[in-house]
Design a protein around this nucleic acid. Structure first.
Lengths: 328, 328
DNA sequence: CATCGTTGTTCCAACGTTGTAAAGACTGGG
DNA sequence: CCCAGTCTTTACAACGTTGGAACAACGATG
């Protein structure tokens, strides 16, 4: 692998002059510039990023800390973050926490200024004490605890409210919610949106219709749905806090021969690609994931470059209505 | 951030002694070792990986080049590769190619010995000329072209054959295949398995029942299925070359009120988590993804450490029978 | 012609780490 | 008490890069 030294020798100039050409420094004689460029071409020089970053005190990487890549929402988001990071000449390092406190702590511990320039976090269990981060960070989702960190995300209350309003507008009266969670910030906000939508339609808030889910996997949605169907009076609609829960819920409904949407309307959250092709397809709250990814990366870039202050960016969302609430 | 120098000053020893302690060199006096360890603890020292790797001539990273993280198979695989890489103290850099030749070329071009120590590739369109890799690499899947690179994967012919045999054993006679592809190595092998299963049961190979798919997304499966249902005599079973195609196919069948599995049996390939919860759930060939990830990383590690020769690792697979071929 | 400012180039040091070689400290045997 | 050998520590250089200072060449100005 060619180094600056090799190029310099070939071009007959000093190492620094080559460095100047590579970095676009203006004052290089046309003649030298040409010779250097030819030598760069001939040697196929590529800068050694490790050395450059050692010198510059930057690493060229950002971390993306998320629960699990096998969760479609995070997989899609990761893809978009990688794409967005490229625009800022950043490479992305993905750390999986598996949604556990230990996993999140160890992911954070492995982060250091020598490894990444900044971090994008999707924590689920972190405590206040854990947020002594060595690098600028941005939170995707919500603050579970009150901590001074930038955040990018949608208005979860409004989004949940829109979803439940949709169910109400279809005439549903007994609407369940799946996904309540003791520590998750988003869960609390979505529950609040659910509560508000019920209230504005003067529908009662019924405790037994709110089912918690510890993980947000398909199996949890199925289990929650089964418990709802076991109620003396099962719900006629259900709002799930993510699409996986909804997919699981629809599956459980099918197993009991409960028809969706005729007997039970279902709304999800995240708008996974999977939900477009499920049978029935799933009505879902669709956050603009590309906007989230771009906003997060751009925010960190500003932060690292110019030490900008904390920010709270709100990204748009929409409600995608499909067969799980309105039959074809 | 503390450096070796800081620790050395605090412990009253030379930088190198600290380095020796950090790297587990044996001959350090117990007394000094203790003092150094205390100083390490006190300063919270973390080695600067950039500097270490610059010195060692390694980067500590491997690249994982794949089409798209939003494809569940690759997302799951990526998660497993990250986990496997951790065991070898490697961080994983994910590059998305979006299945295009240009994307794959640019991903490969961005790879260099200064960026990654090795690479795991899932190419779809690469030509022979492109395989002038600057680092050791391993191919996941199949050689589309004859090129001397290590490979990890399942026996695609046998796996496809098992899937089609299963359909034949259920009494199906007119079995379609979705996913033929002009350049993809796996596609050719799966088609061969399909062909062999038909042959050994003395079933005819019918051209119109083999439908190509350029991408392997859900939409392509749906489109292919529609064309099959438009045939004068539609198939009574279909073998899809991945689960996404199968999900799309089931969706298209549902839209035409073709019942799965009563009117049409469907088998997929990859065994995505999604397929367990679809309605009906999907029978699928299940490669051992964890084994693939671990084998690929371990192989590269051997290669980098001791310059081992090329290898061809075959990982196990199984057939997961679900509702799309056998009604509950 | 001396001075100055501008432009262009080079040299040196440093980023934090580790391999090498050499120096220093200790041990036991003669 | 010296020497050889073993154990322990240190100084130095180097990995490839870039910022800054120093220097050189140049034309313009007074």
């Amino acid at each position: 692998m060619a180094t600056l030294k090799d190029v310099a020798r070939l071009a007959g100039v000093s190492v620094k002059t080559v460095s100047n050409v590579v970095n676009g420094y203006s004052f290089v004689k046309p003649d030298n510039r040409r010779r250097v460029e030819e030598a760069l071409e001939a040697t196929g020089y590529r800068p050694n990023l490790g050395a450059r970053n050692l010198r510059r005190g930057r690493t060229g990487f950002i971390a993306l800390v998320l629960p699990e890549l096998s969760i479609p929402y995070f997989a899609e988001l990761a893809g978009l973050v990688i794409a967005a990071a490229q625009d800022h000449e950043w490479n992305v390092l993905i750390e999986q926490t598996f949604g556990t406190l230990a996993g999140e702590r160890s992911a954070l511990a492995s982060l250091g200024p020598h490894l990444v320039d900044a971090a994008i976090l999707s924590p689920e269990a972190l405590q206040v004490d854990d947020f002594q981060l060595p690098v600028p960070a941005v939170l995707l989702g919500e603050h579970a605890v009150d901590v001074p960190i930038s955040r990018v995300g949608i208005d979860n209350v409004a989004a949940a409210q829109a979803a439940v309003r949709h169910l109400i507008s279809l005439g549903h009266q007994r609407i369940a919610a799946i996904g309540a969670h003791p520590h998750r910030g988003t869960a609390a906000l979505r529950l609040e949106g659910y509560r508000r939508a019920l209230a504005e339609a003067s529908l009662p808030f019924v405790d037994e219709l709110v089912v918690p889910a510890l993980n947000y996997h398909r199996a949890d949605g199925a289990a929650a749905m089964r418990s709802l169907l076991d109620l003396r009076t099962p719900p006629d609609a259900v709002f799930c806090f993510n699409d996986l829960l909804a997919i699981g819920a629809m599956r459980a409904a099918g197993e009991r021969f409960v028809r969706v949407p005729q007997d039970l309307a279902v709304v999800g959250f995240d708008n996974n690609e999977e939900s477009v092709y499920s049978s029935p397809s799933l009505t879902s709250v669709a956050p603009d994931k590309a906007a989230i990814a771009q906003a997060a990366v751009a925010l960190l870039h500003r932060r690292v470059e110019s030490g900008d202050a904390l920010e709270n960016v709100e990204t748009p969302f929409s409600l995608q209505v499909r067969e799980s609430t309105v039959a074809r």
